[in-house]
Computed example of a mutant assay.
Amino acid sequence: MPQGKGLENHTAGSGFILLGFSDHSSLQGLCFTVFLAIYLMVLTGNGLIALITMVDSSLHSPMYFFLRNFSILEICYTSVTLPKMLLGFLMADGRISFLGCATQLYFLVLLGSTECLLLAAMAYDRYVAICEPLHYTLTMSRGLCIRLVMGSWVVVVPVQIGQTYQVFTLPFCASHDLHHFFCDVPPLLELSCADTFWNKVVLYTIILVFVILPFSFIILSYINIIRAILKIPSVLGRHKAFSTCSSHLGVVTLFYGSATVVYLKRRSRDSGNIDKYLALFYTIVTPMFNPLIYSLRNKEVRIALKRLLWKK
């Protein structure tokens, strides 16, 4: 699409304006308080999960190794967006530099993709534990667990560098207004003056590889897990087996449910507000609920937490 007379490209110094809650300017103070409380809950809750799975010897198993890495990932994930949001509420200023927006987008999509792969690795761990319990110790060796975690981080790095570069080499129109709380691919593509067809092809290819395929693997794993659980003769045995999976299944549902709606549904002019509120769900609300889900549903985590608090 050729640029008209009234259209100008962004330069590295011009940046964007994150509108966020600008349509509710009178609530800036309340929003700051609420999101500060959420951020502190994310840091405290996930930090405690990471700490107790590290220091308590009874939690030195593959399942809790994955949980520790997942909790650290959740802290990093929320730290990409929440501090900037809090500063915007406090200063009533949603401006973000071109480089700052590119950096935020890169780490957002990097950590989001890593989370999808890590959730799939956690599902595989539960599959082996319940469907192949006699081979669990041999299959889920420390070396394999480390490779699965490292692979979840490393494999997405070049892909997301490429996507971020592709987005920020587009020409952006005169409007600096980004109708979102943070820099994300769909709202940025809406501001471009150029044809974004190939950007969308890349976006949906990445979604297929790093979101849909891991989610499909998780679904297949849980189909086999449920079949194996139903074959357990005792009610107590079935309850114990399911309780080890329910926490992970709850986090998967929260994360994938909101993220799928945002990225895969057809976008329209009226969908902007809905999309940005749903985005808050998978970037902020899910990390907040992660430690609550695991501490409330997992007896071993509750006991380890009590031991840690008594020591203190």
Rank of each mutant, 00 (worst) to 15 (best):
K311H: 05
F181T: 10
G13N: 11
S79M: 12
M288H: 05
T53V: 03
L51I: 02
G100D: 09
F215A: 02
G45L: 07
L305F: 09
V155N: 03
D270M: 09
V185K: 02
R307N: 14
L236C: 12
T78F: 12
L108F: 14
V149C: 06
V34H: 09
D56H: 03
G151Y: 02
Y263E: 02
C245F: 04
D56V: 00
Y124D: 06
S221W: 05
V301W: 07
D270Y: 10
S243A: 15
G162A: 07
D56Y: 01
Q104H: 09
I130Y: 06
S25A: 10
L59P: 02
V159M: 06
A37R: 05
W198D: 06
K299E: 10
I207P: 07
I226L: 13
K200P: 01
E132C: 00
Y222Q: 01
L19H: 08
D270S: 14
H135V: 00
Y64W: 03
N9K: 08
Y165Q: 11
L30S: 12
W153R: 06
A194L: 13
V128K: 06
R307Q: 07
L90T: 10
L27A: 14
R297M: 14
P233L: 11
I38S: 12
T286G: 01
E300R: 14
L220C: 12
S61C: 04
H60N: 15
Q3H: 04
H60R: 14
Y282W: 15
D93N: 15
A92F: 06
V211E: 13
T286P: 00
A120T: 04
A279S: 15
N224T: 01
S57N: 04
L19Y: 06
Y136H: 05
S141K: 11
T164Q: 00
R269H: 07
I49T: 13
C31A: 11
V235C: 10
H248F: 15
V167A: 01
M41R: 05
L117N: 03
C193L: 08
R266T: 07
G29R: 08
